[in-house]
């Protein structure tokens, strides 16, 4: 792996050549090697250890979530271009024969599928909010969750740091505005210190989500004006456009309003999350420290393996 040059396509080829990722025939869907997975496991352990004093409740949701929940969350207002819904064949034998005929003829057979109740999870925290709301009022001290999920976003790319299916680990704080702001502030510091301990160059910058369309430009400007999103950036495939590996998001009372998350006195909860893009962090480590993890700098090895 040539650590001197930066190019998305050549990095992907390097990762294939070194047996770290495996091609599936679809851009953004890759097999992972054992060592790649080991790096992710070690990094997750580091994240959990750093967050341990906060005593978060851990929940692992599957990569598919309730489609009704996704609809109610407002995701389709902001990111219709990224969403994926699961469709399945629900017809009879006659329609099955038709499907096979269309497939054999190279026609679009997918019209014979119907939408299921399942949508692919776009971010680890989307299934959380209705789950919390169903438990009743939020206690005065607020709540803290640690989540992990495979996530889907439809943005095929040969940039290995832009996968269609990837894992996200998240801490989510639900509570009063000052509680969730303090949570985000503490992770802005902890996150940067953690990445620096791994010997990776990084910077934290104001950011916006990739909202859809021209209206999305306005949403993005609003988000920036209000300082709602920050990202920790590491050069992975480009020095000029470093990759967001951690993100720090303040949702104000958006999810509180949407899901009726409230305290016992009826006031709405605010929420914030810190997300760790696990494949992106692993890619950054391989990109900067090389394909052989045994040859990684001692500090990075100590942070991941010794603790």
């Amino acid at each position: 792996m040539d650590t001197g040059t930066f190019s998305a396509k050549s990095l992907l080829d390097d990762l294939f050549d070194n047996g770290i990722l495996f091609d599936s025939g679809v851009d953004g869907l890759y097999g992972r090697s054992g060592v790649f997975e080991e790096v992710i496991e070690r990094f997750e352990r580091l994240v959990t250890r750093l967050g341990a004093p906060d005593k978060a409740t851990r929940i692992h949701f599957p990569p598919g979530m309730s489609r009704a929940t996704l609809e109610k969350s407002g995701y389709m207002k902001s990111f219709p271009q990224l969403a994926g819904c699961v469709h399945s064949f629900m017809g009879n034998e006659r329609e099955h024969a038709k499907l096979l005929g269309m497939m054999a003829a190279g026609e679009d057979w997918t019209e014979l599928q119907q939408p299921t109740q399942v949508a692919l999870t776009p971010a680890a925290c989307y299934p959380l909010y209705p789950t919390v709301a169903a438990r009743g009022p939020v206690p005065a001290e607020g709540l803290l969750f640690e989540l992990s999920s495979y996530c889907f976003r439809h943005e095929p790319s040969q940039d290995p740091a832009r996968m269609q299916l990837f894992r996200m680990r998240e801490f989510v704080r639900i509570g009063a505005a000052d509680q969730v702001s303090a949570f985000r502030e503490s992770w802005l510091e902890r996150g940067k210190a953690m990445i620096e301990s791994l010997g990776l160059p990084c910077e934290v910058d104001l950011a916006n989500d990739p909202f859809f369309g021209r209206g999305g430009k306005m949403m993005a400007n609003n988000q920036r004006d209000q300082g709602l999103k920050f990202e920790l950036l590491i050069p992975v495939t480009s020095e000029e456009k470093p990759t967001a590996c951690l993100s720090f998001n303040y949702h104000q009372d958006h999810f509180g309003q949407t899901w009726g998350l409230q305290f016992a006195d009826g006031s709405l909860c605010h929420s914030a999350c810190v997300g760790f893009g696990l494949e992106r962090v692993a890619l950054a480590l391989f990109r900067h420290h090389g394909p052989d993890v045994n040859a990684w700098p001692a500090a990075a090895r100590a942070a991941l393996w010794d603790a």
């Binding site: 407002g74 306005m218 400007n221 609003n222 004006d225 209000q226």
Partner: peptide, 30 residues
């Protein structure tokens, strides 16, 4: 909400047959 302001923006563009340039798509404009 931000999303309501987007709906208003699109309705205004239609009503007055105009297109807001990107630099005007800000919180302040609306």
């Amino acid at each position: 909400t931000s999303f309501a302001s987007v709906q208003i923006m699109l309705a205004i563009e239609e009503k007055f047959d105009i297109e807001f340039p990107e630099e005007m798509l800000t919180r302040r404009t609306f």
